[in-house]
């Protein structure tokens, strides 16, 4: 199963895509993904229910978050109400250590994203301050990466033995599915996604030039 693990809808401040339009785009363009995960900035969107859309288009649509830490941005998969109370998702000054610990405590998975990106990626912070214990996965393919940012992300993963995910980081409809993550088995819920990530059996894929 292939899921785009990083995308934004109009719920994110800089997102301009309606979720229904993502679905239409995936199907009408026959993109090689089975679904996508909405990782809205600095929030978890409990309100929206995409079950009907998912059924209508035969896609898996899951929800997660992108939070901001002292080591850059981090995707959080498997968000629960309890986790949402554990730290302030809207803060731009979260300690990565805290996000990792709380995610683990609540059965969620925290994945530093676009690590090769200046300031908002982990690589530069690791150079300055060293790695952070508890990181097991980083995003190695990001659809919005510039230049050598993805190369740096992969180098980081290789150096520290991190698993790597892929996601488009789409903010507009036509950018969905540029990068994704391939899982060996079906993933149908946020909990199953967190479990699959913990299992470590997945592979990042990129079609950046083909979307």
């Amino acid at each position: 199963m292939i899921l785009d693990l990083h995308s934004h809808s109009v719920r994110s401040d800089d997102g301009r895509a309606q979720v229904e339009n993502y679905c239409q785009w995936v199907r009408k363009r026959a993109l090689p993904i089975d679904g996508f995960v909405l990782t809205e900035h600095r929030q978890f969107d409990f309100e929206s229910d995409y079950a009907a859309l998912a059924r209508e288009h035969g896609l898996t649509i899951l929800k997660a978050s992108e939070v901001e830490t002292d080591y850059g941005h981090v995707l959080v998969f498997g968000v629960t109400p309890a986790l949402l109370s554990a730290f302030d998702f809207a803060s731009i000054r979260l300690p990565l250590v805290q996000v990792l610990e709380e995610a683990e405590r609540h059965g969620a998975v925290a994945v530093p994203c676009h690590p090769g990106r200046t300031r908002v990626g982990m690589c530069a912070h690791v150079v300055e301050r060293g790695p952070v214990a508890g990181v097991r996965i980083v995003e190695v393919y990001n659809g919005g990466s510039r230049g050598s940012e993805d190369d740096e992300a992969r180098a980081l993963a290789e150096r520290f033995g991190y698993h790597g995910t892929g996601g488009s980081d789409a903010h507009i409809v036509s950018h969905i599915g540029r990068c994704a993550t391939r899982f060996p088995a079906a993933v149908r819920s946020e909990a199953e996604l967190a479990e699959a990530l913990r299992a470590g059996e997945f592979e990042a894929v990129s079609w950046k030039s083909k979307s």
């Binding site: 401040d13 901001e68 731009i92 990106r117 200046t118 300031r119």
Partner: peptide
């Protein structure tokens, strides 16, 4: 009004 971090910081 809102805040976020980007390539150039806060």
């Amino acid at each position: 009004v809102y805040e976020k971090t980007g390539r150039t910081g806060r």
